[in-house]
Amino acid sequence: MKITKEEVEYVAHLARLEFTETEKVRLTTQLNDILMYMDKLNRVNTTGVEPMSHAIALINAFRQDVVWESLDHELSMANAPETKGQSFKVPKIID
C-alpha cells in the first residue's frame, strides 16, 4: 500500500475536501494505483540533476513601482457569496 485511508483523510483535510466512507475507500484504491505507477520514476538516475520548475528559464521580470487604479469597489465585491458593509463575510472561525 502506497497510501492508507488515514493518509487520504489527512491529505483531504490539508486540501479542505471531505469524502464519504465509500468515496474514501474508492479514492484510496485509485490513488494507490496511480502512485504505484509513479514508482517507475525511481528507475531514473537523477543524481545531480537540477529540478526543472519552469518550462522556459527566464530571469528578472519586473514592474515599476507605479500605483494603478484599483478595481471599482462594487466590482471587487460583485461575485462574493456574502458581504457585509464593504467587506467579505465568512462564518465564524473555530481555532
Partner: peptide, 12 residues
C-alpha cells in the same frame, strides 16, 4: 475582523 456579537468574520 471578528464580529463580537455574531458568529461571523469580515475580510478586508
Amino acid at each position: 475582523i471578528h464580529d463580537e456579537y455574531n458568529p461571523a468574520s469580515y475580510v478586508d
